[in-house]
């Protein structure tokens, strides 16, 4: 991968000046049936920040991430991305559900990377990347091809443009998935355990791409178990357990000198 190349063409700096958070969650509750998965989550991510969500499985990290782009509907509280309420329109004191088409429009500015890659298996790498810019943004095929090729080259897959996902390694597939999300020129990227399904020796190549993204000024919310990644690039860290944020703050505080007993126990187990 070329180190000098940036993955983000033009970092979103306009929101930075306004001082408005990119993601703002206020008392977010989410339940599946009678099971409360999120119990009053408050947190903010400022533009160009990398925010890492840590914690044991079933703690609600992935659910929170999926609420941010409205793949899951929240039951209470409010969730804004770049100042826009996700999935609802507020008129006075009344909330109106958005149409599927409008939710899709909101999502198109938020990239998401999944644990299981979820590449489209019937499309080659370059077809995966260019599909949405052509069909959703209406970009010309020629332009989309050029941009997709450039993105794939920058994640180190310039040789794999015409390869189907099944013929790529897990690390390569995840890099295609990142390029696919970036092709929509998102203002926010969500990562749901992007390295958990990878063989240990392939984790590094995906984390490298993510670190590059963080350096380029992409706003990112990352669910991961990679404490090293959090220490190196995170601006903020939150430890979630039982549907609440147990402790949050800068990585030096949360990861090096945790205040909460729960955090200490979690870190000692993960780092052991």
């Amino acid at each position: 991968m070329a180190d000098d190349a940036t993955l983000v063409a033009a970092p979103v700096v306009t929101d930075l000046a306004s001082g408005q958070p990119m993601v703002k969650a206020e008392q977010v509750w989410k339940s599946f049936g009678r099971l409360d998965v999120l119990k009053g989550i408050d947190f903010e991510v400022m533009p160009q920040q990398t925010y890492v969500l840590l914690g044991p499985s079933g703690g609600g990290k992935s659910t929170l991430l999926r609420c941010i782009n409205h793949l899951e509907k929240i039951n209470a509280g409010r969730l804004w991305v770049a100042g826009e309420l996700m999935g609802y329109r507020q008129r006075g004191a009344v909330l109106h559900e958005m149409k599927a088409r409008d939710v899709a429009k909101q999502r198109s500015t938020i990239g998401m990377v999944f644990q299981r890659f979820n590449l489209f298996p019937h499309m080659t790498a370059i077809e995966n990347v260019r599909e949405s810019p052509i069909r959703v943004q209406g970009i010309s095929r020629k332009q989309a091809d050029k941009e997709a090729e450039e993105l794939l080259r920058r994640v180190g897959l310039g040789e794999k443009l015409d390869t189907y996902p099944a013929q790529l390694s897990g690390g390569q597939q995840q890099r295609v998935a990142i390029a696919r999300a970036l092709a929509m020129k998102p203002k926010l990227m969500l990562f749901d355990e992007p390295t958990s399904a990878l063989d240990p020796e392939l984790v590094g190549e995906v984390l490298d791409v993510m670190k590059q993204l963080a350096r380029d000024g992409m706003t990112m919310v990352v669910v991961t178990h990679e404490i090293g990644f959090a220490k190196e690039v995170a601006d903020g860290v939150a430890l979630m357990d039982g549907g609440v944020i147990v402790e949050k703050g800068p990585p030096q505080d949360v990861l090096v000198n945790p205040k909460e007993e729960r955090t200490k126990v979690f870190l000692s187990k993960v780092l052991a």
């Binding site: 793949l71 999502r107 979820n118 959703v136 929509m184």
Partner: peptide
Amino acid sequence: EAASSLGMSP
């Protein structure tokens, strides 16, 4: 889910 997160309509 992946397609939805890319802004595609149903």
